[in-house]
């Protein structure tokens, strides 16, 4: 329902950042998040970063899937 795309934070000036998705760099507001750092991945919706992506959870689908497998076998 709400288009939100992961971007990488490449530059921060106060609450305004430059974020990048595969070669496209644009301005993104950081007002909805605390302690964002350069290099973080954020979900961007309508020009605002709405959440940081947690890299440790990125493989959650695969892990959870393995869990189901083990559970059933």
């Amino acid at each position: 329902m709400c288009l939100a795309v992961p971007h990488k934070v490449v530059e921060i000036n106060g609450k305004e950042a430059i974020t990048e998705l595969g070669g496209i760099k644009k301005k993104t507001r950081l007002d909805l998040l605390e302690d964002v750092k350069v290099g973080d991945f954020v979900l961007v919706h309508a020009g605002f970063a709405i959440e940081k992506l947690n890299p440790e959870e990125a493989r959650e689908i695969l892990d959870a899937w393995r869990e189901i497998e083990e559970h059933q076998s």
């Binding site: 329902m1 709400c2 939100a4 507001r29 909805l32 919706h45 309508a46 020009g47 605002f48 709405i50």
Partner: peptide, 8 residues
């Protein structure tokens, strides 16, 4: 917009 959009 919903909760995703309203904070902006």
């Amino acid at each position: 917009g919903f909760e995703t959009t309203a904070p902006a």
